[in-house]
């Protein structure tokens, strides 16, 4: 018997759509100064956030976002059945250490920058499948912790190329439940790992665009929908270069998304903030989704949104060994209640 909740090859349709019960976003100072600054629940005054290290600051942001999302849902940590979270740091130290402090049964996720959407997709499946009442999904990134792990120490005098993106300092969290009021999740399209041979670690947008495009096309084919069925199609962190490429790739498959397509990495910074192509990192889609998007959906600006979390599965080790950078994209359909 075919799985009755699956639509097409990669899409899941929820007959009892899970609900966003509470969303929270904590963002860094640069993000706070950006165009979406006012949509974030907490904006840090400095990147250390009163901690001794940037790694601890990232954890504090993640913990803060989780606690606030639980509070906004009108729940306590004890009401959360599972927590699903991830970040960019080796051994997922931000997510693991935050889960240690929160004491919620925990599933660690690594989807690079797609982690927020990966978490929401899985949380929605657990809830709709009847395995949980409330699931917490969360993700974080921090410019200074990511930069030193993936590239150079922050004080190193290097010129960033125009294709490079700025890792967002921020954390987002969402509590997903099976009932209540709030935006609902109607579909999820799980992406494949796609690699079209991009090797430049300073051009993640180009590395991720094929994966994002593949998931978007697959979503349309699986559901029979078309771009105009959505008020907004938004990718996680393709930024300027990746956005242009994804739009073209999707168009080659016969879907024109140019009318209503944008990217979280483009929205989060003002061009004057000198981030070059735009934002990236788990925190990018996490704060834009949990800050800006959910608020706009609840305010009625968007009725139906197709969000695609995008991740560049970059490893400094494999990259030095000459491997290209695979990408992944997971799509989630969010509708106004």
């Amino acid at each position: 018997m075919a799985p009755h909740k699956k639509t097409g090859q990669q899409t899941i349709t929820f007959h009892n759509p899970p609900v966003f019960r509470g969303n929270a976003s904590v963002a860094g100072p640069k993000e706070g100064q950006g165009p979406l600054g006012r949509t974030f629940d907490v904006v840090l005054s400095d990147t250390l956030y009163g901690e001794e290290t940037w790694e601890k600051a990232e954890r504090k942001m993640l913990a803060g976002a989780c606690q606030l999302a639980i509070k906004k849902a009108g729940l306590t940590a004890a009401d959360i059945d599972f927590m699903m979270a991830g970040d960019l740091l080796n051994q997922l130290i931000s997510a693991n250490f935050t889960a240690r402090d929160l004491g919620i049964p925990f599933i660690g996720l690594y989807g690079a920058c797609s982690t927020m959407f990966e978490g929401i997709a899985l949380a929605a499946m657990l809830v709709e499948g009847g395995f949980a009442d409330h699931v917490l999904a969360a993700a974080s990134s921090h410019y200074d912790t990511a930069e030193r792990q993936y590239r150079y120490p922050t004080e190193m005098g290097v010129q960033r190329p125009l294709t490079s993106q700025w890792t967002v300092t921020g954390a987002g969290a969402a509590v997903i439940g099976h009932q209540g009021t709030g935006p609902v999740i109607t579909h999820v399209t799980i992406g494949k790992v796609i690699d079209l041979g991009i090797k430049d670690p300073n051009d993640m947008g180009s590395a991720m665009a094929p994966a994002a495009a593949d998931t978007i096309i697959r979503h349309f084919r699986d559901t029979g929908r078309k771009p105009s069925d959505y008020d907004l199609i938004i990718t996680g962190d393709l930024a300027a270069v990746g956005r242009a490429l994804a739009e073209q790739l999707v168009k080659q498959a016969g879907y024109d998304i140019s009318e209503n397509y944008t990217d979280c990495g483009i929205l989060i910074y003002d061009p004057a903030q000198d981030t070059h192509a735009g934002g990236s990192g788990c925190g990018c889609s996490a704060v834009v989704l949990n800050g800006y998007l959910v608020k706009e959906i609840m305010a009625g600006k968007f009725k139906r949104v197709l969000g695609i979390g995008t991740g560049a599965l970059l490893s400094p080790v494999s990259n030095l060994q000459g491997e290209s950078i695979p990408g992944i994209g997971h799509a989630v359909v969010i509708e106004a209640d």
């Binding site: 190329p161 125009l162 294709t163 079209l196 041979g197 991009i198 051009d203 180009s206 094929p210 300027a240 270069v241 242009a244 490429l245 073209q248 192509a277």
Partner: peptide, 18 residues
């Protein structure tokens, strides 16, 4: 082949260093 076509596409879109 797909990789080759894509790398040409990227080369067209990618901003050149100033």
């Amino acid at each position: 082949m797909q990789k080759k076509i894509y790398s040409q596409m990227v080369a067209r879109i990618k901003p050149k260093p100033p």
